[in-house]
Design a protein around this nucleic acid. Structure first.
Lengths: 186, 186
DNA sequence: ACCTGAACACCGTTCAAGT
DNA sequence: ACCTGAACACCGTTCAAGT
């Protein structure tokens, strides 16, 4: 006899993980409360107990998950900045299904904190005008990932082709990153 | 007696205009076929006659509308490139409601043609590697607009605050654009 | 505290029917 | 050719009820 309902309790974290999986594999438009409930072996209404504002809260949480990036402070601000850009890019690339949310929703909660922390790290490491620098870095990462994901054909018809890493995109990113860092230190 | 039903016929163009207005003023999630029908004083089902693939086709058309940008060839490739970046930015800024689609949907139809034309213009004007240059330019524009619209607070609660031009964003954009063009000519 | 069932208003889309 | 009405399957969310 198969174990009927293992008493793994629902949690905010499990909900977000399942939601990310659906969005990345089937697209954001197919992420519905009912389907999310199915994936968690629970009725859709149970989700509201953990995310009181419902789907709106879920969307916010998904955006935050791929967008609240932290990084250890490196010896120089240049290295810290590079590490942050690379980590941010990876986080966004890993979840193309919620990229539209991440690029579009205003920073909130954990994301705002992460941005603030990054500004402080760079300031402490001796970079003047770190707030503007972080804005420029975010724009660079956002644009790079958007173009890369678009090009990869992560779209409605075929989701299969999104597996191989794009070496061209990697090279472009690193080249642009080096130029950006150089431009910042004037 | 008020004119009941002026025989202005439905058309693809009128549908797209009305859809952009709804998306920009109320957000993409409130753009529904039924609401769109109401705005056009028509039953929702009438839309399917002009956009056979329904909402999917509508979304594609909206993305194309803000993304298929053309520009006259200027004397130098530098000026052409700048004009193209500025025009692309304006088109995206004008319709924050469909920005998520524009940054996320793979180029199609008119957008693909516009990109191809831009590559040719730059190549003809003497820029080697124009295809990569256009990718870099698109990434720059996408990232800039994403950060700007995020910062502007164009979001769920208050849509009012999106009226004043952000001079800071303008300056950032022009500074980045100059650096980008300079980086391209190596 | 945590989850379910039933219900409500709304959604995209079809299809036959009207003009 | 162009639009409507009715219908279907699905959606987000509420609320009272169960345990």
């Amino acid at each position: 006899m198969p174990a009927k309902r293992p008493p793994v309790p629902l949690s905010r974290e499990r909900i977000i993980d399942a939601a990310l999986h659906i969005a990345d594999s089937q697209g954001l438009r197919r992420l519905t409360m009912r389907r999310l409930g199915d994936a968690l072996e629970v009725e859709a209404m149970a989700i509201y107990h953990h995310l009181p504002r419902g789907k709106e809260a879920l969307m916010d949480a998904l955006a935050e998950h791929v967008t609240a990036v932290q990084v250890e402070a490196a010896p120089t601000w240049q290295e810290t900045a590079k590490a942050w850009c690379r980590a941010s890019r990876e986080a966004l690339r890993d979840h193309p299904g919620v990229l539209a949310l991440a690029l579009t929703k205003p920073p909130k909660g954990a994301t705002t904190l992460a941005i603030r922390e990054q500004v402080e790290q760079l300031t402490d490491a001796g970079l003047p005008g770190a707030a503007e620098a972080v804005r420029t870095m975010r724009a660079f990462v956002f644009g790079s990932v958007a173009v890369e994901v678009q090009q990869s054909g992560w779209a409605d018809p075929e989701v299969d082709t999104w597996t191989r890493r794009d070496v061209q995109a990697d090279a472009d990113f690193e080249r642009g990153l080096a130029a950006l860092i150089k431009g910042l230190q004037i």
